[in-house]
Amino acid sequence: MRLTVLVDNVALTDRYFLAEPGLSLYLEDGGTRVLFDAGYSDILIANARKMGIDLLRVEDIVLSHGHLDHTWGLDALIRLHTEAIIEGRERIEPTFIAHPDAFLTRSRDGIGEIGCHLSVEELFRHGKVLLTAAPLWLTENLVFLGEIERRFEFEQVPPGGYIYTPDGIRDDAIVDDTALACRTPEGLVIVTGCSHAGICSIVEQAREVCGEDRVADVIGGFHLEKPQPEQMQGVLDYFSEVQPAALHPCHCTGLAAKITLSKVADVRETGVGLHLEYG
């Protein structure tokens, strides 16, 4: 499996790419190409083009959850595909994969929409849409983990904002938050968006779904920007036990959390332009 960071809060030193508070990762497993999240704006298009990655050949566009810093870049992808059709260029019609709640309207702190502003109906005009709360295997080794079971008390945080459902408005527990996991010869590679469900709960679900305890790497947002002491200690204890070979925390992971995690694991630098290969 190969992975490239297209969008993150920072770019690697001496790599002249664009960065923003958002996330988008490009994966290849065998002959299957996957885009995990789309960032906030159109910078994933410019970064991918500069890296020689053809986003028109991506089969699956997977969303970790519905927040704007992971979904608003879909506008740019739709424009890219629309122009390709108009210009007669080759493209693959993508399949959009997400939890059923990922496209519901969300609000917080007086902001009218912090979720994806594209509806499922609109996406259907641009490709296939597959919504599932259950795990879904994309390849023989790569799986969409579905709705995450929240297993650890120390990861429980109060709901932030509201979500607008067909049954009315409710507190937003971000139940659509999910991740990918890939089986490799070295163990699992787990790819996260923001880990609102809890980074430890995500890793546990990946180990359970894949039937593999070894963790080769976890890359993505850990949602540890300003964690409470008990949450940080719980995460620290968990990774001390799991002993991942490497961690690549980025996006919504604060510097203090990275420093703390480095006491129990090999924490490595992450940013736009990073390219990793496993197995």
Rank of each mutant, 00 (worst) to 15 (best):
T4Q: 08
T13R: 15
F17D: 02
L18C: 05
G22T: 06
S24L: 03
L35F: 02
F36C: 06
D37V: 02
G39A: 10
G39R: 06
L44S: 08
L44P: 01
N47S: 07
A48G: 03
R49G: 01
R49W: 08
M51H: 04
L56N: 06
L56T: 03
V58C: 02
V58Q: 02
V62Y: 03
H67M: 07
L68K: 12
W72Q: 12
G73F: 07
A76Y: 01
L77Q: 01
R79A: 14
L80F: 13
R89L: 15
I92S: 10
I92V: 15
I92Q: 09
E93W: 03
F96M: 03
F96K: 02
A98Y: 09
D101A: 14
L104S: 04
S107Q: 13
I114W: 10
H117L: 12
E121Y: 06
E121Q: 14
L123G: 10
F124N: 13
H126I: 00
G127L: 05
K128H: 09
K128E: 13
L136S: 01
L138A: 06
N141I: 00
F144R: 03
L145H: 05
R150M: 10
R150Q: 14
R151P: 00
R151N: 05
V157K: 15
Y162K: 13
T165A: 11
D172E: 07
T178R: 01
A179D: 09
L180S: 05
T184K: 07
G187A: 10
V191A: 08
A197R: 03
C200A: 15
C200D: 02
I202Q: 07
V209H: 04
G211K: 04
G211L: 06
R214P: 00
I219Q: 12
L224Y: 09
K226P: 00
P227S: 10
P229N: 11
Q231P: 00
P244R: 08
A245F: 02
H251N: 14
C252A: 13
G254V: 05
A257K: 07
I259A: 13
D266H: 14
V272F: 12
V272R: 06
V272P: 04
L276Y: 09
E277P: 01
